[in-house]
Design a protein around this nucleic acid. Structure first.
Lengths: 144, 144
DNA sequence: ACAAACCCCACTGGAGAACCGGGGTATACT
DNA sequence: AGTATACCCCGGTTCTCCAGTGGGGTTTGT
């Protein structure tokens, strides 16, 4: 449950798409990459993964780009993570080969993961947008 | 906050030491490694780190070995982790170079870390020993 | 003296993360 | 029709970190 570049880039991109959501017109990789300082060829891969995961829709050809597949408040950070950190190997296998001790240790980490998931499931893209907006408001006030 | 081999091995070793704690005589790397199937030369490094972190004491020479530095209920899993995953780079630096968006994302992960730490701080070595014991009791009953 | 144990440091091999590049395909606009 | 735009797919490269290995030293009990 660490924050990789992958996940961060993807979230930043999705935030851009969230802001664009009401316009109903696609946003290009180039635009997003430029605005958030992300290597564009890499972002391309990530958006492709998000598309396969059903989080965004793509439109090919000229004037194409990406759109959010559903409303920003219906996509949680956990959705994003589990889409990217794919091919999850759920534990609970081969309990016989493990010692009792490592099983006990494993239980603790399962609890850790559960707690982490709670947090990640709680926040939606909309929440992040709101946070960002109120934060930039604050920055502006301090500037004055 | 992932469970690395490093952390798992260390915890297994500390569990062994916890069980030996009341005898007041040191336990050797060899013994621990054999019992928990850990490469002994690797475990050596880990125990050295734990010693520098003040979690175990060592006794050199023949009949030497390792002892827990304090009672098993006074060592939390978090103590172990923060000792091993050393040289932490605390964030909060260069907030000026980061965009507002990535700052917001960062906050979420700080919350995740905080929750994880709560869990890891809650369990002590004693707790794990107790869990292990009641688990082996259960296994025994199922066997019958 | 000698053997048992810890101590320290350096090295290697493999895996995964972060990118980069090339060539293909769909779409809009003229 | 032709061209430019932008996504699509797949493979390679570089770099870092984890897990594990090895060699040589020092302390201590018998």
């Amino acid at each position: 449950m660490e924050l990789s570049c992958k996940t961060e880039y993807a979230l930043l991109a999705l935030l851009e798409l969230s802001s664009y959501y009401q316009r109903l017109e696609p946003l290009q990789i180039r635009q997003i990459a430029a605005k958030q300082n992300i290597p564009d060829r890499y972002l391309e891969q990530l958006l492709a993964t998000l598309r396969r995961g059903g989080l965004v829709r793509s439109q090919r050809g000229a004037k194409g780009g990406y759109l959010l597949a559903r409303e920003p408040w219906k996509i949680t950070i956990l959705d994003v993570m589990s889409c990217l950190e794919g091919s999850e190997e759920s534990a609970s296998e081969a309990t016989s080969t493990k010692t009792v001790e490592s099983a006990v240790v494993g239980e603790v980490w399962q609890e850790v993961h559960a707690r982490a998931k709670e947090v990640l499931q709680h926040y939606t893209l909309q929440d992040l947008c709101d946070k960002r907006d109120s934060q930039s408001q604050l920055d502006l006030m301090y500037y004055i």
